[in-house]
Design a binder for these strands. Structure first.
Lengths: 248, 248
DNA sequence: CGCTCGCTTGATGGAACTCAATATAAGTGG
DNA sequence: CCACTTATATTGAGTTCCATCAAGCGAGCG
C-alpha cells in the first residue's frame, strides 16, 4: 500500500533525510489545503522534520478524551470524528474532519474529546510540543491556525442552531446538502456518505431510526436516490432540499 | 455614570491623550482578564490608542448577522448574547459573553452572527482593521486570542452535546451549575441569572414553558430557591444538581 | 386602579424515541 | 457456490417527552 510506503519514508532520521522529507511534503495531497499552505517549501522543512505519516484503520481510536495531549495532526486522507460522550454512553459527534483539516488540543495537557477514524485514515502527525515550537517560529502558520479555529467555531455555532432548533427533516436535509457542496467542490457528481447511519444520528442529535425514516422520506419524494447500497446517493432535486432548510 | 465619564475620556485624540489612555487601561476592570492581559503596560498604549469605550443599553443590537464586519470589542461590564436566527424567527443563543470576553469577526468581511446586549453593557471597542493591525505587531496578543478561540470551540462542542443529547432537566441543571461556578469564582454566594426565561430557552434549545417547569421542579425538590424574584437564586443542593448531570 | 410584561401552570397534541421485527448486505467457512 | 453468521439498515407499533395553545398570576408603573 502506498500509505505504508510513505509511512516508512517518514521514518528516515532527521537531518539525514531532509531531501526525502522535502520531497514528501511537496507531493503531499494536502500541501495547499492544510496548514502547510501557509509555509514556503523552504520553511516547511522545519515542520517536515518533526512530522510522521501514520495510517489509522477504520474504527480505531486516535485518542481518548482525558488522555494526555501529546499529539496533533493534519488529515491527509480519510475522515475522523470528534466525539463527546456521557457516562451512560450517549454520544454526540461534535466534528467531522476531512483531508486538510487539523486535529489536536494545543496548549492543554488533556484531550477534551475522543478522536476516532471513521474510515481508514492517513495522518501527518506531530508531537504536540514540537508543533507548538514550530508555531512560535512561523507567525504565518499561527495566523492560519487562528483563522481555521475561528472558522471551526463558526461551524460549531451553526450546528448549535441545528441541534437546538431544527426538526429531524431539516437536520437530515442540511447534512445531505453539506455533503453535496463538498462533493461538488471536489468535482464529484455523486454524494458519498462517509459515515454509518448511527454516526449520522450521533452527528445530528437523532436516533438511527429517525435518520433512516427521514432518508426514506427524501427518497420517496424523489429528492434523493441511493445507488449501490446505503452510502452513495444522487441528488435529484437540490432546490427542494434547500427549501426544506429555508422555509417553515 | 462612571461608564459615560470613561467614554468621554476615550475620545481624547491620539497622541495628545496618551497619558490619559494609559491611565484608563491600567485601572480597567478587565486589564488582567481580557486579551489585554497578554500585553505590558507599555505595549498596551498601541491598543489603547485605537480603542473607544462604549455603553450599550440592555436589549440593543451591537451588530446584525450579515452586517459588514468592522468592529470588535472586549466586554468590560455586563453581558452580550451571540445569536443565530432562522428565517421564520427560530433563534439559538450560541454564546454568552461576560467581562473579559472578546467579540468580533476578524479576517471576515461579514458578521456571521447577531450580537445583542442582554443587560446594559460596557465595551472597549476597536475598529476591526486597527485591531488586526495590532495583532500583527504583538505575537503574545495573537497567541492569547488563539488560546481563547480554542477554548470557545471546546465550549461550543460541549454545548453541542447538551443540545443534541441531553434532556430538558439536564440542560437546565447544567446551566444553573455553570452560573453557580461563575458566581463562586467571583466570590458570590448567590447565583444571579443574567438572562430572561426566554433567553434561557434560546440558549438551551427549549421553550420558555419547559424551562419554567424544570426550574419549578428543581425548586420543589429543594435543590434551588429563588430570592427576590425570578432572577436570583440560591443553590441548596449542588451535589444533587451535579448528579442530575452525571447519572442517567 | 388597570395596564403591560414576564413568569408560571394546565391541558392537549405531535414529533421523535423506544422496543421489536424484518430486510439487506457482507463476510466466513464448509 | 451456497448455508450460516454477523453487522447494518429499514419498517412498524406504541410510548414519552417536550412543544403548543391557553389561561392565570404577580410585580412594576403610568
Amino acid at each position: 500500500m502506498s500509505q505504508v510506503a510513505v509511512l516508512s519514508a517518514a521514518r528516515v532520521p532527521d537531518g539525514a533525510g531532509s531531501e526525502t522529507t522535502a520531497t514528501r511534503c511537496k507531493s503531499c495531497a494536502v500541501r495547499t489545503t492544510a496548514l502547510c499552505a501557509s509555509m514556503t517549501d523552504e520553511d516547511l522543512t522545519a515542520l517536515s522534520n518533526v512530522g510522521r505519516r501514520r495510517v489509522i484503520p477504520a474504527g480505531q481510536i486516535l485518542s481518548w478524551a482525558g488522555d494526555e495531549s501529546n499529539l496533533c495532526a493534519n488529515v491527509v486522507h480519510g475522515a475522523l470524528k470528534v466525539t463527546s460522550t456521557m457516562a451512560d454512553g450517549r454520544e454526540q459527534i461534535v466534528g467531522l474532519l476531512f483531508p486538510g483539516d487539523f486535529v489536536g488540543q494545543l496548549f492543554e495537557d488533556e484531550m477534551s474529546m475522543t478522536v476516532t477514524a471513521v474510515v481508514e485514515t492517513d495522518l501527518c502527525c506531530y508531537s504536540r510540543r514540537a508543533f507548538e515550537g514550530i508555531l512560535d517560529q512561523f507567525p504565518r502558520l499561527e495566523r492560519m491556525l487562528l483563522k481555521r479555529t475561528m472558522a471551526s467555531l463558526n461551524d460549531a455555532r451553526n450546528r448549535m442552531l441545528s441541534l437546538g432548533r431544527k426538526s429531524a427533516q431539516e437536520r437530515v436535509a442540511g447534512f445531505i446538502l453539506e455533503l453535496y457542496e463538498r462533493s461538488r467542490a471536489a468535482g464529484e457528481s455523486q454524494v458519498s456518505i462517509p459515515v454509518s447511519r448511527g454516526e449520522m444520528a450521533d452527528y445530528l442529535g437523532l436516533t438511527i431510526e429517525t435518520v433512516s425514516r427521514q432518508l426514506t422520506r427524501l427518497r420517496a419524494a424523489n429528492i434523493i436516490a441511493f445507488v449501490n447500497g446505503d452510502r452513495d446517493c444522487r441528488i435529484l432535486d437540490s432546490l427542494e432540499l434547500e427549501q426544506i432548510l429555508d422555509q417553515s
